[in-house]
Design a protein around this nucleic acid. Structure first.
Lengths: 342, 342
DNA sequence: CCGGTTACAGTAACCGGTTACATTATTACA
DNA sequence: TGTAATAATGTAACCGGTTACTGTAACCGG
């Protein structure tokens, strides 16, 4: 293994262009005047030598990494594709890099998060990838953060971008009740501690209450935003003698899929006997055999907004404390309607 | 904005623990013996001060960034989720960071790639995110790379991991011909320059030839691995008076979806009149109204292998020049079969 | 008891940039 | 013509780690 030949430094360029390193640096950063002839010379030498400034050296000197971190709990769901895509775009457009990492605060208490002040200028934190204590610590050292799909605790003034969960949830449950006359509605809960799940449940309850339908805890089942888990749980629910029900509000589309499969297995006709609705409007939701009635979540937009907020902070501007993106229900057929809408 | 208070350096730790910075460094890296009492002291001070070593300083000194780059052409397809997920996992398990970036060599000729020797220890390059010239340059300075879904040109000895495209393509076309008696088979080509597409086309041709079916260029239509593009192209094909056909081999599942939609629009019954098959076996392919007959591509495994190969190189071991992951055809219903298989 | 290791620790150079400060030449203006 | 401002550039300290080199003391076999 030959020694790393990428050892062309700014001094090499300086020497060859017969100027000082300071001048080269100035030329590169265009932060001080450089005479045209000298600029020309430097530029030529740089091209010849194929010189690219060493990022770490630059970071060390400027104490900026020009990269922002994204902390996820997992990448395993297609849900994250648009989030990543949106975020990456704006980050790249602003000449920053994106460090993607997964971290489960609950599992890796002993290890520090893989991205943080030591290697990024700021991070975007998804849901509960980080625990409050860590957020608080970074907040104290005012390290730039923005939370997505999570509200900071009241004493931490961290900008966040999330979506309207409760109103839309309420609306979609209203739809089940008002349009389809459903009254015994199951809710498949998302992940523990996951705020989206919490709000969706509140919307569900609000709708029930508004319609004078009593809340029945037996109709709440575990879903964890996971197709398989929901399938298992729903199957188990159906296997034992269970309370009546005539609809399911799944906490996300993946979960809805699990529900539908379990119902199919049990020979229960959907949507005739049981309406099923989801949340997110993932890519697959409109191409299912029974297109899903769900709530459209602007996930890519969440990514973009998170990016632009964190960049704002880095530029010294104030970020919007809260960015709440609107959601809308999209009626397809799994609720029992037969409209076909994109 | 108060000055960045993350200025706790190794010297602070050293002072407070009453040792030299060298000793602290040794303790942190465990690369030289440190007496138990001293270790204890350092450890305590580090915890108290909440010290985290500054990555850039470390990078500069060691000339290692402990991060690896992933260069994609886009993140916009769910296809990338498993790739990312697999790669991130092994990278994280080996205490490295993952820098995700998109880059279209063809579009941004003037800009250097966002990840490279200046900010990573090695990169994983997807398909044609980089042009040959850039690969060659990095190869010359022996910068660690591994290619995914791309074969390096013969004179560049770069490890690559990809999947068996041709054999599987041939097999799936064989299936159309032998089991379903199809003989006029459309191929929706993927992206120009995209090797997968090329090999799949070769498999297609090989099958035709083996069955004595003449190759008809009029049956090749543009698809670009894109649902929408394929839909448009297929619709256009159907709109004008077109040669007969009785099957479509789409270069990927997304494309297959576009095909099916166009056929549905035209009132052509699938799979009765026309068989449609795809490639990749994406998440959605088995939950479609007409479950897709396709080829299972182990994309997550590709991510994992790419990760382990690049890490091997970083550790000075030799990587496998080629990692060819097997694919298998999965028969569902869009070809006309009615087996139901997961 | 002695020469040679080994364990442990400190000093300071170095990684490759940025930038405060200093210097010189040129221009502007009274 | 003299003085101040400005443009263009150089020198060298500094960012925060790592590590080569050095030194001391304890240890080891004979």
């Amino acid at each position: 293994m030959t020694r790393k030949s990428h050892s062309i430094t700014i001094r090499d360029v300086a020497r060859q262009a017969d100027v000082s390193v300071a001048t080269v640096s100035r030329y590169i950063n265009r932060n001080a005047p450089v005479s045209p002839e000298v600029a020309e010379r430097i530029s030529k030498v740089m091209a010849e030598l194929n010189y690219v400034p060493h990022a770490a050296a630059r970071h060390l000197a400027t104490r900026k990494t020009r990269s922002i971190g994204l902390l996820l709990t997992t990448i395993n769901y297609d849900f994250f594709t648009p989030l990543l895509s949106g975020l990456e775009r704006v980050v790249a457009e602003n000449n920053h890099n994106l460090l993607v990492a997964t971290y489960r605060a609950d599992l890796r208490k002993d290890y520090p998060p893989p991205v943080g002040p030591h290697n990024t200028d700021g991070v975007v934190v998804f849901a509960d990838a980080l625990q409050e204590e860590q957020l608080a610590q970074w907040y104290r050292m005012n390290f730039p953060m923005v939370l997505v799909h999570r509200t900071p605790p009241p004493y931490l003034n961290i900008p966040y971008v999330t979506i309207e969960n409760k109103a839309a949830s309420r609306k979609i449950v209203d739809h089940l009740i008002e349009v389809h006359g459903r009254r015994r509605i199951i809710f498949t809960r998302g992940l523990e501690n996951h705020e989206d799940s919490h709000w969706r449940e509140l919307g569900y309850k609000a709708s029930l209450e508004a319609h004078g339908i009593p809340y029945d805890p037996r109709l709440i089942i575990r879903g964890e935003f996971d197709r398989e888990v929901t399938y298992q749980e729903m199957s188990a629910f159906l296997a034992n003698n269970h309370p009546d029900f005539d609809a399911v509000f799944a906490s996300d589309d993946d979960s809805a899929l699990g529900v539908i499969r379990a119902l199919n297995d049990a020979g229960i006709p959907v949507p005739e006997s049981v309406s099923v609705v989801g949340f997110d409007d993932q890519h697959f939701s409109c191409i299912l055999p029974l297109p899903l009635t769900t709530v459209r979540a602007p996930t890519e937009e969440v990514g973009r907004m998170a990016g632009s907020q964190i960049l704002k902070i880095l530029q010294g501007e104030a970020a919007d404390p809260m960015t709440l993106l609107p959601t809308e229900i999209v009626i397809r057929q799994s609720c029992g309607c037969n409209e076909s809408q994109s």
